[in-house]
Amino acid sequence: MMLKVQNLEVLYQRSILGVADISIDVPKGHIVAIIGANGAGKSTTLRAISGFIGLDDARVSNGSILFDGRRIENRFPHQIAHLGIALVPERDKVFPNLTVQENLEIVASRTGHAERRHLEASIYDSFPRLAALKAKLAGLLSGGERQMLAIGSAIMCSPTLLLIDELSLGLAPVIVDDIAERLMRIRDELRLTILLVEQSTAIALRMADYAYVFENGRVVLSGSTDELRNDSSIQDAYLGTSGGEQRNYRHVRNRAQGPAK
């Protein structure tokens, strides 16, 4: 198992529960998705894996995170990046006052100069749009271009495990399809393992091999994406293909009671 999260509990400000008891496995070479509503603890889980800084005032208070057999919980983000885990964050994913090229340049990678050049070439190859925008400030990019740059700069870290917090959020479907396709290509080329957090269940089930469903900081369901696609409760709650008023309302209420994000 490449990544093994066991009974993870995260506390914010020493008292607010972010996630309560999360266990997930990410096997090498696979794409694993985490789905669930707002505030279900998806982002918190990814943040716990990629490391907190002092400003977050958060820590893993229980459970463990194993990466290639090594415990990595509560380490600094740069140490985790050097071990080979890179995150594409949900918000503030690029440095707005740096150019596209500089956004890749600042990455403190764990590899040598030759490998850096190779990665940079792969990124510009997979996302030719970025190559055309090299000298443009990242703050002036469109949402889709920003997402490409965020993926690119995460890949610049030379990761073996890529964490993606919301691939599709705020983007037009046609752009999401394009980015997803390019991501899959670069993932095959670099043999990346991916842990993907998605609000769009349809996209998550399409891209991933295996998925976990989070609710209120806990895993409520998991299975291969083929199984989940046919699961009636998933269809009710997240795909909107069946189910009546009553059930939907209860879900809305559950979400409102969920822990803070």
Binding site: I53, A81, K93, F95, I106, A108, M156
Partner: peptide
């Protein structure tokens, strides 16, 4: 300078800089 760029990046978003492998 690479470290100069990293200083600017850290000023803009320290968390993201750390996630990109920069030792804050």
């Amino acid at each position: 300078g690479r470290w100069g760029l990293r200083m600017r990046a850290t000023g803009q978003n320290a968390l993201l800089a750390a996630q990109r492998g920069v030792n804050l």
